[in-house]
Amino acid sequence: MSSNIPADLKYSKEHEWVRVEGNRATIGITHFAQDELGDIVFVELPETGQELTANSTFGTVESVKTVSDLFAPVSGRIVEVNQALADAPEQVNQDPYGAGWMVVVEMSNPGELDELLDAAGYAQHTAE
């Protein structure tokens, strides 16, 4: 297993990761995604209090060359947004699972987590 796919996270096929702590889920994009995008120069995120719906877009991440939608891996209300990314979007490249986190949601339907991939499943997904 690659260290670029932490074993303790869940993953969506659209290359978001989810770290679950109780009812809260921290969301970001994977190492694979940031590497595919290249230098990230802009991240547009929703505001605290907004509701996310699983599998719908909640923001965009732009590299020099491309615009990519962010898809919510789970539903819920946003309780935290990584404001640092407004001025330092390169943190998504440098530390996608740490300083590059994007939002924290309070999940409304934790059962949705079962639809996500585990690290092994995601490794297989990105190898395809």
Partner: peptide, 8 residues
Amino acid sequence: PVQFSSIL
């Protein structure tokens, strides 16, 4: 090639 290391 669109990039080799990083566009920036």
